[in-house]
Design a protein around this nucleic acid. Structure first.
Lengths: 145, 145
DNA sequence: TAGATTGTAACTATAATAGTTTCTTTTTCG
DNA sequence: CGAAAAAGAAACTATTATAGTTACAATCTA
């Protein structure tokens, strides 16, 4: 069970709310994990231009695009698109007509469900998952408001 | 990625087609696996009355209910209902309002997709996955025809 | 009573995900 | 310039879920 999408949404919202650049160490603390794992997770998003990283003191991660312009599907794809559906077909005995019939029928069902869920993910932006509570405010919004 | 449902459908159709009782060893060969694993998989289905097992020589597995009276959801449930959706929420920092918002939103999405897929599984019987090829015939059908 | 079979517990193997260590590169700032 | 802060990345270890194996008891048939 892949919780990378959930963790990534959590991270992106924090990066967006963060006043300056958020370091991998700071983000790691938010996820109760380590900086290296954070860099690994963010790598795909950096390559797609959703976030950007700067090195050296004062460096870290910043959003390179607003949360409202990134969909859950974008994030899922950037993470390496693990299967959305938790069940899969089997290939234990490929010459068996019974297995082939099951693979075909169940495969169609899984494919349909997968496409349907992917369509949903493409219709929701990360911004829609950000909490609207004022208590989350860390200074960035007050600069705007 | 759980392929137990696919394997189980494969097995059930074979048991149904099989002339006498199908032994765990025979079924294991079909799945390219071992008899103990087959017994473990079939345990839940036996407890729910979908199949029955007899010990001793000539023993093995038989259907206790026609394939047309067992849905994919029945099989999925009997296998211990692993999650149908491949992504899940995270609980890294439960006091964090951002994580909570993500958990809530994504959770609803996952729950909806899961229910929708489960509903589909409940609308399909195992019989609908059996191949209709005459080449699969192993003697049982010829007794009828 | 012998052998075939399931039932089951306990152990081992494998693969995916996550975590850690270590080192290099880049950047800032005194 | 040189020290320290940060990302980039490779290589290794740890954890967990699934699958596979071994071993043995229970039961049934002939």
């Amino acid at each position: 069970m892949d919780r990378r999408l959930a963790r990534m949404l959590h991270v992106l919202i924090h990066i967006d709310l963060h006043a300056g650049a958020a370091t991998s160490k700071t983000i790691g603390a938010m996820l109760d994990t380590n900086p290296v794992f954070v860099r690994r997770m963010l790598r795909g998003l950096r390559e797609r231009g959703y976030v950007e990283a700067t090195k050296g003191p004062g460096g870290g991660w910043r959003m390179a695009r607003p949360l409202s312009k990134i969909t859950l599907k974008d994030v899922h794809d950037a993470l390496g698109s693990s299967p959305l559906i938790g069940i899969t077909v089997a290939h234990d005995h490929p010459s068996c007509p019974v297995e082939r019939a099951v693979t075909k029928g169940l495969g169609l069902l899984i494919e349909g469900a997968s496409k349907s869920l992917l369509k949903q993910l493409a219709n929701v932006s990360v911004a829609e998952f950000a909490p609207t509570l004022p208590s989350v405010d860390d200074g960035k919004r007050s600069l705007k408001g």
